[in-house]
């Protein structure tokens, strides 16, 4: 899958990406309506995904693969539950609209705002975060920057062409009588699964 940058971690400025910003991230992301699970290993992450799929009675999942996901064997676990998992670009294009859950991995998290920074160069990597009613986002819990300034320090190093975005909580509106309502055009649930263990050259 083509990305804006194949190695974001190489652009992380020394000393500015650290688990010390996790608490701020967690607080702000929760305030924005995100659901957060912090786990030590990819194996634990797998259980959370499986439980969520069971509880929501999911039948169809679209997922863009990443090292983190692959190491947790998530797709296999879901298939064992009788869920159809699509992870090929054309399949995602065909099925994202009718899928129950979309799964992706983001590059890093931002403490100041509770945001996730996502590399969305590939069309399918965007669809899985946009169209299904639930978006599960994996992030390495050590890949957190303090603020938006630091986030842009990283982005400015890698961003030449394509699509980069922040996701902060679920889709929301207050356009009718200023009443906060969740899930307009995007997912109504953002489930963040933060994994402590570094996978495939992750930050420690």
């Amino acid at each position: 899958m083509k990305k804006v940058c194949d190695n974001w971690q190489a652009a992380f400025p020394a000393g500015k990406v650290s688990p010390e910003f996790w608490a701020a991230f967690e607080e702000n992301a929760k305030n924005a309506g995100a659901e957060i699970f912090k786990v030590k290993t990819a194996a634990e992450a797998k259980d959370i995904v499986a439980n969520l799929a069971k509880f929501t009675n999911a039948k169809k999942v679209v997922a863009v693969d990443s090292a983190l996901q692959a190491s947790a064997n998530i797709n296999e676990e879901l298939k064992e539950l009788g869920i159809t998992v699509y992870n090929d670009a054309t399949d995602i294009a065909e099925h994202a609209e009718s899928a129950d859950i979309g799964i992706s991995t983001v590059e890093f998290a931002i403490g100041e705002s509770g945001s996730l920074c996502m590399d969305g160069y590939a069309f399918e990597s965007r669809l899985v975060t946009m169209l299904p009613p639930i978006h599960i986002a994996f992030v390495n819990s050590n890949a957190v920057v303090a603020g938006i300034n630091e986030a842009f320090e990283i982005i400015s190093k890698v961003y030449d062409n394509g699509y980069v975005s922040f996701i902060t909580g679920p889709s929301r509106t207050a356009d009718i009588e200023r009443v906060l309502t969740i899930g307009v055009h995007g997912p109504s649930r953002l489930v963040i699964i933060a994994v402590d263990e570094a996978i495939n050259g992750g930050v420690n």
Binding site: A32, E124, Y163, R172
Partner: peptide, 22 residues
């Protein structure tokens, strides 16, 4: 604008990003 630390989505795009059409 709304008293939020960040809106739900912030999107940056440049160039001819890939799109899939049927």
């Amino acid at each position: 604008a709304t008293g939020q630390r960040m809106t739900s989505y912030m999107t940056m795009t440049t160039g001819q990003t890939p799109v899939m059409v049927k």
